[in-house]
């Protein structure tokens, strides 16, 4: 096993989790998931369209990647819990990416509802991976409730604005006893690398790959960035200085 992410004792093949939404077509999505060496892939749970046109997503991804169903779009703990329970029945997994959205414009989480849902789901046997704000206090509460990871946002979902509050992300990582996965806001590879340099255990992204000009190439770049950032974090970066320090020896300069 490579230096991958471990969640609730399960070793995953990489530290990059990828979404399955918004790709130009199914084949590009599958190629991107391969190129990024996705540790797990997220799926949504939605009503079957009574007018037909069933999507065979499960046939395409099942058995190839660990599936992480989400409760995307839920606005209450009540709906999120039911969606999670349906996801468990549909996909035979107790992993759930918990999302409880408080505002349609920002897609920021509704923290009180999310905490309530997290508590109910943990009590019901779920392994909860909550999408949360970049607030260290909330992250701690989620860990205390028994969540197996915490997933703070870098910036609003789909915005591509990167990590707006790196100090908070680093603080969450420093305090957490469970894996911290940056979820939302990544726009390009340097954002993913920064998340890892700040101490995140992984990165979850979708739009930055799916809506890029070349999703397969971007997925590959994201995988490399996550690995590079993780490597740099553990190699130990030099301290920042406010003055220059020459690399070449000062002795022996000609004309001296």
């Amino acid at each position: 096993m490579s230096d991958g992410l471990v969640i609730d004792g399960i070793a995953l093949p990489s530290r990059l989790l990828l979404g399955t939404g918004g790709y130009p077509n199914r084949q590009v999505m599958l190629d991107a998931l391969v190129a990024g060496n996705a540790a797990a892939v997220t799926v949504s749970i939605r009503r079957i369209d009574l007018a037909g046109g069933l999507e065979s997503l499960l046939d395409a991804v099942s058995g190839k990647w660990r599936l992480l169903p989400n409760t995307a779009g839920c606005a209450t703990a009540h709906d999120a819990v039911l969606t999670a329970q349906l996801a468990r029945e549909a996909l035979d997994t107790d992993w759930i990416k918990l999302e409880v959205i408080g505002d349609r414009e920002t897609l920021y989480p509704d923290v009180p509802e999310m905490l309530r849902a997290a508590g109910e789901l943990v009590a019901d046997g779920f392994k909860v991976l909550p999408y949360t704000s970049d607030d260290p206090v909330t992250a701690q509460k989620l860990e205390d409730l028994g969540c197996v990871a915490v997933m703070p946002l870098g910036s609003p979902i789909g915005s591509g604005l990167g990590i707006l509050n790196p100090l908070n992300i680093e603080r969450i990582c420093t305090r957490a006893g469970v894996p911290v996965i940056l979820d939302a806001g990544v726009g390009t590879a340097s954002d993913a690398a920064l998340a890892m340099e700040l101490g995140c255990a992984g990165v979850l992204l979708n739009t930055a790959v799916a809506r890029s000009h070349d999703p397969v190439a971007m997925a590959r770049a994201m995988g490399l960035a996550v690995a590079a950032g993780h490597g740099a974090r553990h190699a130990g970066r030099i301290p920042k200085r406010t003055y220059a320090e020459a690399s070449s020896p000062e002795l022996g300069l000609i004309g001296g």
Binding site: T20, Y23, M29, S44, I48, N206, T207
Partner: peptide, 10 residues
């Protein structure tokens, strides 16, 4: 009655 299935998502 709610009948659901997995679809693409992030």
């Amino acid at each position: 009655v709610e009948v659901v299935q997995p679809l693409s998502g992030g």
